[in-house]
Amino acid sequence: MRVLNKALISGLVGTTTYLTAAVAMAADGGLPQLDVSTYSSQVVWLVISFVALYALMSTVALPRIGEVLEERQNKIDDNLAKAEDLKAQAEAAASAYEQSLASARSQAADAIREVKEKASTEAHNRQAKLTAQLSESIKQAESSINKAKLEALSGIKAVAVDVATAAVSKLINEPANENAVSSAVSTALKSRT
């Protein structure tokens, strides 16, 4: 509200200034501006000069300025477009570089993986072969050991039968029954092994 009144007051002040000034000057005896006899010539020459200026501006000055401004703007636009072009090219080059880098890297990774796989399968195979060989040898060894054990055992049995027969015959002063002695020795051997 206060601003409203301030505007109005300044308006009233201005108006009163104008009016008092006008009255004072009119009373002074003629403000030249109010001398109507001069009006005609002023209007005529005003129209002449304004029209002349308008013609000069619209045909000479303004087009010239407009052209220079437009030329400059075109040049700037051109340069900016070129800059954008180059920027796009740089981006394309950068992304191409990155792509080839990435593909090279993945290729290397693939190759490495292949080699690793191959190496590991080979190692696997060799290991399996070795294991098989070893178990073969072990089996053979076990069977020969068993054979030897059996042979030894049967040899032991014959010797034990002989010794037992001799001992028994000595003991009972009669020739021993071979079958009875051998079955007794087998039972005794069985309980020992």
């Binding site: 505007a7 300044s10 308006g11 009233l12 002040v13 201005g14 108006t15 009163t16 200034t17 104008y18 009016l19």
Partner: peptide
Amino acid sequence: EGVGQAMRVGAELLSGL
């Protein structure tokens, strides 16, 4: 500002009258 506004605004008021 002051004087400028008074003159401008005075012109508006006066011309209305």
